[in-house]
Write a protein that binds this DNA or RNA. Structure first.
Length: 633
DNA sequence: GCATTGGCGTCGATCGGGGT
DNA sequence: ACCCCGATCGACGCCAATGC
């Protein structure tokens, strides 16, 4: 009976949160009915009377009735006289537990009272959602408060232990005007009142899959991402533990407890772009973060000792270059306990017979020889070459031929040159720009005279790789802009509209960005011209390297950096230029007239000078310097 | 208030393997 | 040697959450 009464009180509280100051007893029964049936209780008049009697005994609950002697009334009589129940505020606060953090109200100022009231409303709204929970972004919209202002409240309530937050991914299918589905998703947090919390472990996350929203429904809201109301049926718990365990088990059974990642992915069906991503972001990351497995990438140098070690038969080196494997070491993996494991070395060269030469042997031999000559000439001049770039350059040189050079052909040529000692091929690793935890790798062809990669050399290599990639992307984008490669598929209705919209959108955004950047670039250019003159003059007259602490590496074409003290350079700036590049307004209209054209920042009076160097100006200047640094190629 | 972070989809390039 | 295709990868943009 206690449980039933608790349930009744819970219902009364939730109904109060929903705005009913007093709840008619006739409204309470239908809410209780499902719970009672679950427990095999039929809501007959006797049960009703028993529940009522218990409620009457709860101190604090108030009953609105015409008849004073409630205890003697039957259930029917109570219903007939429209009995209503009022839950007092302190009981509501008890339900959300906000009373635990409440301080004496008399001591609070007006703002503090408002803040407390807001927290109460938030808690009550979360309480209404009960075990279904409510997403953070949904709540943010309901309250009309910006997410970045609201976040602190959620965090505070979480720290106080009043609510629980779980990471959740929301998928929304939005219908465009033409009725096609566009899938969108966003990450947010699901909020529960502590009493309704879901007990999720670290390998579980919530996924909310919403229904279809027609675009008409969105007229009042621009962003569709959070518009799906999360009801219980849409929320799924995605549990990664079973799949992680399965992988651990496979590793346990594997020989040496090592499996090639490509094999295990194929085995478990992680294929295509999406599957691959899922593997990287949700499976491999979880395993490595839990330190349950270790991933090793083995790179075998091209034409290493293996090739010259008395083995006369050819080896298909291509298959042995890269092999990413994962390893598990300890049997305690089932608990996903951190385990340290050692690096393995497993190389499995595959033998393959050479195929007979074709009848075009002579012509091909000639082409290969010419190719090798080109490579050697480039190498002599440039000392190093990036393989993908080399491939492109050779393709351009061979444009006249009816066939195009295969990358494997190039590899063979490089291998041959390397064996003869005419070049060295090295894998160069460098950090990726995005947040991927792996380094990027490029094969670099080096002149044999280079024994080791100096830092300066590495910088040159990085810059070359970057400029090559920029060039490649610029080419593909200019094709795209000309409309050569607009991906419109006429036979397929699906997705067409969206692609066109995206292209227009992208172009509009791009041109807008260029427009808004132009003044900034003009400012940057002015600053650059000034600094360049400044640093050259300074070097002509005296050595500036000892004159200040804020320095900026301007240019190092020939490894000889010219350092400039930015602070001193700005001091020496003409006032007009300073105002232009920092975007500040002049102090007085007649400032220039009064002081002449050659006024420098360093010789204006202190009272005029100080307000000029405000935070805004410094920020502007810093931004320009960042822009200049990015231009440094 | 603005900047950064993190997760995800899209796009285009590269890689790897198999066929002729 | 050349061709083809699916798998894989990195850059980038978007957006909500988060940090300062």
């Amino acid at each position: 009976m206690d449980a039933i009464v608790n349930k009744a009180v819970e219902e009364l509280c939730i109904q109060s949160f929903k705005g009913g100051n007093s709840i008619p007893i006739t409204d309470l029964w239908p809410k209780l009915k499902p719970y009672l049936s679950e427990n095999g209780v039929v809501l007959c008049n006797n049960v009703k009377k028993a529940i009522l009697s218990s409620l009457i005994n709860i101190p604090g609950l108030e009953f609105e009735t015409k008849d004073n002697d409630l205890v003697k009334c039957t259930a029917e009589e109570c219903e007939r006289m429209e009995l209503k129940i009022v839950v007092p505020e302190h009981m509501l606060d008890n339900f959300t537990r906000i009373h635990e953090v409440e301080v004496s109200k008399s001591k609070l100022c007006k703002q503090e009272l408002e803040a407390l009231h807001l927290r109460k409303r938030v808690l009550q709204r979360i309480a209404i959602a009960r075990a279904n929970g409510i997403t953070q972004c949904e709540l943010t919209k309901e309250f009309g408060i910006k997410a970045n202002n609201f976040f602190h409240i959620f965090k505070e309530l979480e720290v106080l232990g009043l609510i629980v937050r779980h990471e959740a991914v929301v998928w929304t299918n939005k219908a465009s005007n033409k009725g096609k589905l566009i899938s969108k998703h966003t990450t947010t947090n699901m909020l529960y009142l502590s009493r309704y919390r879901k007990h999720l472990h670290s390998q579980q996350r919530l996924e909310i899959r919403g229904g279809v929203l027609m675009s008409d429904d969105l007229s009042h809201e621009n962003s569709a991402s959070c518009d799906v109301k999360s009801n219980g049926e849409d929320v799924h718990i995605k549990d990664y533990l079973p799949i992680l365990r399965e992988i651990c088990n496979k590793l346990e059974k594997a020989k040496g407890k090592v499996i090639a990642i490509s094999n295990i992915k194929k085995d478990l069906g992680y294929r295509d772009a999406l599957g691959h991503k899922e593997w990287r972001k949700n499976i491999l990351r979880r395993l490595t973060q839990a330190q349950v497995v270790e991933v090793t990438e083995e790179v075998q140098d091209w034409g290493n000792n293996r090739m010259s070690n008395g083995q006369n038969f050819p080896i298909d080196v291509g298959n042995t270059v890269n092999d990413t494997k994962m390893q598990i070491m300890d049997s305690s993996v089932r608990d996903l306990v951190p385990v340290k494991s050692s690096v393995t070395e497993t190389i499995s060269p595959r033998c393959q017979a050479y195929k007979a030469y074709s009848s075009h042997k002579l012509r091909e031999d000639w082409a290969r020889e010419q190719r090798e000559q080109w490579i050697l000439k480039m190498l002599e001049e440039e000392k190093f070459l990036i393989k993908p770039e080399l491939q492109r350059r050779l393709e351009n040189l061979e444009k006249g031929r009816h066939t195009s050079m295969d990358k494997k052909t190039l590899e063979r040529s490089l291998k041959k040159l390397q064996q003869k000692g005419h070049c060295k091929c090295l894998d160069v690793f460098f950090p990726a720009v995005t947040n991927f935890y792996e380094n990027r790798k490029k094969v670099v062809v080096l002149h044999p005279s280079i024994y080791e990669l100096s830092p300066a050399m590495l910088v040159n290599i990085y810059d070359r790789i970057r400029s090559f990639e920029r060039k490649v992307r610029k080419e593909s984008f200019s094709q795209f802009e000309k409309g050569n490669a607009l991906p419109i598929v006429h036979d397929m209705d699906r997705g067409q509209h969206r692609v066109e919209m995206d292209v227009q959108d992208a172009l509009a955004k791009k041109s807008h960005r260029i427009r808004s950047m132009m003044p900034k670039l003009a400012q940057a250019k002015r600053l650059h011209i000034y600094l360049w003159e400044y640093v050259n003059n300074a070097h002509d007259s005296e050595d500036t390297s000892s004159s200040g602490k804020y320095r900026c590496d301007l240019k190092n074409n020939d490894n000889s950096c010219k350092l400039v003290d930015i602070g001193a350079a700005i001091e020496a700036m003409q006032l007009e230029l300073f105002l232009q590049v920092s975007g500040s307004a002049p102090m007085h209209e007649n400032m220039f007239e009064k002081c002449g054209d050659y006024l420098h920042l360093s010789n204006i009076p202190m009272k005029d000078y100080t307000p000029l160097r405000d935070t805004q100006s410094i920020q502007e200047l810093s931004l320009l310097i960042v822009i200049l640094q990015r231009f440094k190629v």
